[in-house]
Amino acid sequence: MKKMILFIFALLACHAGYAQYFCTIEGAELHYVNYDEAGQSVSNETAVVGYVGRDGNNLSAAYVNKIVTNKLKGNTSYTRFDWNYDGNQTVCVEDLGFGPYIDSDSDPAKYNTAARAAMQEELKFKGDNSLILKRNAKAGESMPDRSYSLIVNMLKNEITLSGATYMGEERISTTAGKFDCIKISYLKRTKVLLKTTTHRINEWYAEGIGLVKSESFDMKGKPAGKTLLVKIVK
């Protein structure tokens, strides 16, 4: 019973505040499982809310995500997501320089604006990898296309996100609870050298939480992977 009360408190705490699509409780943990195309678990991911700030109508937070890949040596990696809400829309940007910075054995506490700029230059990052979620978006409403590029393992990766559309609201149930979500769908095209791969991505976001579920499919409709929120811990 005590664990259940704590779980409910953590869930409500993450929802406290504005109508933003991210958690605003510093130290809260969102636990995910990532699955492959066959439905097998391939990694566990924990997003820790490491920073929350308020400036007038703007609300911001940073998630630091730790990904532990199953059955793989040197299996731990990191990334970071920066969130902002201005009272009308939520903007999420994955900081693609954070993981390489941590991999270089640099001090996470010293990762600042200058360090980020240096990592982006090293990765030759260009473009826009932001995600924008509007309040009260209607089903069928389109979202702007985005594209960006960077160097990964000495190879140039070019990513294009296109045809994004709001699909309406849907309730999603996982082991973490039941969530009223906004669903979006888009095409993700990744080009590395002469090879291009395109997937259909469906994602569900809940206010006060962020990502609850993500599914990807190849262009023939076959599953290519899935991510699920499985637990919330304060």
Rank of each mutant, 00 (worst) to 15 (best):
M119V: 01
L155C: 10
I184N: 11
L193R: 13
T198I: 13
S214C: 12
A117K: 14
A117E: 08
N202M: 05
V152A: 03
A61H: 03
S104E: 14
F179A: 10
A176Y: 08
T227A: 13
V68T: 15
T197R: 08
G50L: 01
T90V: 11
T113D: 13
N88I: 10
L12G: 09
A109N: 02
L150T: 01
I159T: 12
R189N: 12
F217W: 06
Y148D: 03
K71V: 10
A109S: 12
A47P: 02
G127R: 02
L96T: 04
I151F: 04
E141F: 04
N84A: 14
P100E: 10
N58I: 08
I67D: 06
Y32M: 13
H15W: 07
T160A: 12
G53A: 14
E207D: 10
A114H: 03
A118C: 12
K191V: 15
L6F: 13
D128Q: 07
G210F: 06
E169W: 02
V42N: 00
N57R: 11
N112R: 03
Y186A: 05
R146P: 03
D105E: 15
T69G: 01
G127T: 11
S41E: 14
K183D: 09
Q20S: 15
K188V: 07
S142N: 06
L150S: 03
D36F: 10
T90K: 03
S41L: 00
Y21T: 04
A224M: 12
S77W: 06
D218M: 09
Y32I: 12
M4H: 01
T160Q: 09
K66R: 15
K231R: 15
L96F: 13
N112Q: 02
L6S: 08
Q120W: 08
I232R: 08
C181E: 06
D103K: 15
T46C: 09
D107C: 07
K213S: 08
T197C: 04
T196A: 10
A38E: 11
Y205V: 00
L194V: 14
A61S: 10
Y51V: 03
S147K: 08
L187N: 12
S173Y: 07
S173K: 10
V152Y: 10
A10K: 03
D180P: 01
N58T: 14
N129G: 12
G50F: 00
A117D: 10
A164P: 02
A115L: 14
E37H: 11
T174A: 09
S104L: 14
A164V: 00
N57Y: 13
Q20E: 11
E26M: 10
K3D: 11
Y32V: 07
K73D: 13
A47F: 04
Q20Y: 05
G39L: 08
W83S: 09
S142D: 06
L211T: 00
K191W: 09
C23R: 04
Y63Q: 06
A118T: 11
A62P: 00
S185K: 09
T198A: 05
R189C: 06
V192M: 04
G168L: 08
K183P: 07
C23K: 09
A164Y: 02
F217R: 01
K178I: 15
D86Q: 05
S149C: 08
H15V: 01
F81K: 14
D180W: 03
A139I: 03
K124L: 08
A224V: 15
V192N: 05
V68Y: 04
L11Q: 12
K195C: 01
T165L: 10
A10D: 04
E207F: 00
N34A: 11
A118F: 07
Q40I: 02
